[in-house]
Design a protein around this nucleic acid. Structure first.
Lengths: 250, 250
DNA sequence: CGTAGAATTGAAGAACCTCAAAAATTGTGG
DNA sequence: CCACAATTTTTGAGGTTCTTCAATTCTACG
């Protein structure tokens, strides 16, 4: 019904008719940033925190490799994973408005981040307008994706949410030129469940059902590596969850 | 436990030590934008759509008065209210990354929006760095608030979610210098429920319970106007919902 | 007024959560 | 390299919350 209007969201069509770097690849963007900003590079390991809620804002961070989770904390002690960051993503935008970060950024794997002073970035943007475009694109993407997350949580049943989560993960890796037929979830069931608004048991059951339906597979050893032979099958599974009746013929 | 680190989120402390316009009031910011951008002004009425998903991006919009909802659409026809916009908020950031808007922006009341060409804004930012700060602050706020929304939906039971929604609405109005003791929800129960990830019946029941507990009141005629004598009572209600056991003394 | 949309409320059912136990995996120190 | 402990994951059973379906009341508007 609304397919035509929204198809650009699922499959980024529209070649580079737009402004100069609207569709720059992750690698190209990183190269541009490295050249023009000469950022300080920092290696991180699992569990390292790049910034914490309440800490004074000053830097933005660009993820060159590895994988991060963004954790929101409420005054009453609730914790919520509100975002996952992959290669090419920026971290720290939440700190601009209030002069303090409002989340924790935690490394989920070994990786490298580039540290960029916000002040220095703004200065560099004056001479290199392309940088500003890259910055705004990153912020815009984050806003769009946060909205998609909210929609997932609000409109999909638990099983579909897990399937959609895997689909998003695989597509994100694909965009960045990585393997998607077998992905390693570096999150526990509890962390996935927290991110998706369900219990760890529900995540486990959903994964079991996905495996039973051959939408995903588990590697021989360990159940943290998920085989995704066909990403489209995940989307199809989501649709099947949404279909109310089994739609028996005749 | 984490109070000190996160208190800056609920009550924006920290006076204007920071950069020039970090804590500018909504009115001052609007004045600056009006002076420096001379934006085209446009009056909107309930139901008007400022932009739609799939439409080519070109403008950002600043809400001077009135009230908007942002609606996300999925390829399979699901609709999701993913944001509410009040005076001083910007609309259209989602369009920057993909050169097309990814949501619908729908007016929920009569109001006035200011139309700003993104290109023109970037040009103006070069000569007026304060504008860039205002722009980034608006985007950063949106990212932070989207995360708070996700946390609400993921961690709060239905009743608390409705209470937290009213609390946010009242605090948003307060920040903009409007009345908060009696607010007019210009949304149906169905729209509120959609935004909060629950059915319209659950919203209705939650509001009834809030009224029964005297946390809110209903205006004599009609149940769309909500009286909020004490915003703190809403926060207390949320905490009560989170407390597992009734905590009987002894 | 009278109709259409919106809101409330009740009853029954489904989806998900909690609690619990067992199996699998990972990490650690000998 | 192995054994042990700690953690993670799976799976089942029962309970709770929320949804669905339905009927009624209320509100707005011609």
């Amino acid at each position: 019904m609304l397919n035509t209007a929204t198809s650009s969201k699922t499959t980024p069509v529209l070649p580079t008719i737009g402004r100069e770097c609207a569709d720059r690849s992750t690698g190209d963007t990183l190269k541009l940033l490295a050249e023009q900003l000469k950022p300080q590079r920092r290696v991180v390991h699992t569990g390292d925190t790049i910034y914490q809620a309440g800490e004074r804002f000053g830097n933005l961070y660009i993820l060159n490799s590895g994988f991060f989770k963004i954790v929101n904390l409420s005054a009453d002690g609730r914790e919520q994973v509100v975002g996952l960051k992959f290669r090419g993503d920026w971290l720290g935008f939440d700190g601009i408005a209030g002069s303090r970060y409002s989340c924790d950024a935690v490394a989920m794997d070994t990786g490298e981040i580039w540290v960029v002073s916000y002040e220095a970035l703004l200065a560099a943007c004056v001479t290199h307008p392309g940088l500003l475009q890259v910055l705004h694109t990153a912020m815009s993407r984050e806003i769009s994706h946060d909205r998609d997350s909210l929609m997932s949580v609000c409109t999909l049943p638990a099983d579909a949410r897990v399937a959609d989560f895997l689909r998003y993960w695989a597509e994100t890796l694909a965009e960045r030129g990585m393997r998607t037929d077998e992905i390693t979830l570096r999150m526990t069931r509890a962390e996935i469940g927290n991110y998706l608004g369900m219990t760890l048991e529900s995540v486990s059951r959903a994964l079991s059902r996905l495996a039973r339906d051959n939408v995903i597979g588990f590697a021989t050893k360990g159940r943290r590596d998920v085989q995704i032979p066909d990403v489209g099958a995940l989307s199809a599974f989501v649709q099947r969850c949404l279909a109310p009746a089994p739609a028996m013929l005749q």
